[in-house]
């Protein structure tokens, strides 16, 4: 017992560039390996993917109609998952082949049909940092020099201030330290009395 299926396969453009017949053959060979009767197989479209799959921005779509035994589905899925030239696939059950499909497939089989080569991969544009203009560069240098001068004066004041204030405090703490033990002893003796 066989069913009729429609398979849409997203093929890697690197494989397609090496030859459309070979790329198509990878899919049809997998189908025949799993006892599928391929009725039609043709190039559907080459387009930019809505999101990247395995780092690919563009891919070629192949549509195929085939009959497959009922129990051959899992094996076919496994083979397609393992094949690296097939980025994605979708197999759906259909009732009948569309009327125009046979004609389109036969047109591709003819000798005068030329499969257009996939365009170059959409590479992201290289990021170029704009060079600063000479006037802006000079002004920034001046401002940096001014900042550096201001920073030096600030450090001087910061280092100068504590030296003036620390001395009396240190002297006071030394004086307290020398007098504290005596006073604490006095309070203790007072409390005890």
């Amino acid at each position: 017992m066989t069913n009729l299926y429609e398979g849409m396969f997203v093929l890697d453009n690197k494989v397609v560039r090496q030859g459309w017949k070979a790329a198509k053959g990878t899919v049809t060979d997998i189908l025949t390996k799993h006892a599928a009767n391929t009725i039609t197989a043709r190039r559907w479209d080459e387009r930019r993917l809505s999101y990247s799959i395995k780092g690919r921005g563009r891919a070629t779509y192949l549509i195929a109609y085939f009959e497959l035994p009922k129990d051959a589905g899992p094996g076919l899925n496994r083979s397609l998952e393992l094949n690296e030239s097939v980025l994605r696939y979708l197999i759906t059950r259909v009732d009948a082949i569309p009327a125009t499909e046979a004609e389109l497939a036969s047109r591709e089989e003819s000798d005068d049909f030329v499969v257009p080569a996939p365009p170059v991969e959409d590479a992201p544009a290289p990021v170029v940092e704009p060079e600063p203009e000479p006037e802006q560069a000079a002004s920034t240098e001046d401002s940096e020099a001014a900042d550096a001068a201001a920073g030096d004066s600030e450090t001087e004041t910061k280092t100068g201030e504590p030296s003036g204030t620390l001395e009396p405090v240190a002297a006071a703490t030394v004086a307290e330290a020398s007098t504290e033990p005596a006073s604490s002893d006095e309070t203790k003796t007072d409390e005890g009395a």
């Binding site: 849409m8 997203v10 387009r47 993917l49 809505s50 999101y51 799959i53 994605r88 979708l90």
Partner: peptide
Amino acid sequence: KRARHLALMSF
């Protein structure tokens, strides 16, 4: 959902 799976449409 099928079109999204095949990257024909974005999520």
